[in-house]
């Protein structure tokens, strides 16, 4: 299968650079899969698991949250806010964060902003757990 050059750069540095067959990730608008020779494209990244199929057919997974995806003249750039490979995820910590966020959401007196924040925390924890366990 045709391959293309993918760059994944997060705030913690260059996470991945190299030839890949395809990447699938969740955008603000639903799941998207980018194959070689895609047209120029740009979208925001949501919260979900990203699946990369390398040039040799091997698959990798990562929790990918926030940021943007752009395809510019054949160069695919993924600029997530957080990017964690499945083997780097601390599941215990994610579970603790999930429990804490759920606990907080039980409180009905919560302000709107605090609720949004707790919900975001919960989603992030769920994405991490999902990525690590699938």
């Amino acid at each position: 299968m045709a391959t293309y050059h993918l760059q994944v750069v997060s705030l913690d540095g260059m996470e991945y650079e190299g030839e890949v067959e395809k990447i699938m990730l969740r955008t603000v608008d639903g799941d998207v899969e980018i194959l070689a020779r895609h047209t120029n494209y740009c979208t925001g990244i949501g919260m979900g698991t990203a699946h990369i199929t390398m040039a040799d057919g091997k698959e990798s997974k990562a929790a990918c949250i926030g940021g943007m995806l752009s395809v510019m003249d054949g160069v695919v750039r993924v600029l997530p806010t957080t990017w964690e490979w499945d083997n780097e995820i601390d599941v215990e910590r994610a579970k603790a964060a999930k429990a804490k966020a759920e606990e907080r959401l039980k409180d009905t007196q919560l302000t709107k902003e605090a609720r949004v924040r707790a919900e975001a925390k919960l989603y992030r924890a769920l994405v991490r757990i999902g990525t690590a366990q699938k």
Binding site: L11, T27, V28, D29, V32, T39, N40, Y41, C42, T43, G44, G66, G67, M68, M72, D73, L79, T81
Partner: peptide, 23 residues
Amino acid sequence: SLILYEPDSETVFNTVVPEYLAG
């Protein structure tokens, strides 16, 4: 060259710009 925005350029910019600033 034309760029395809999904769902549309306004939504993309509105979600991406705050994250860009923070970064």
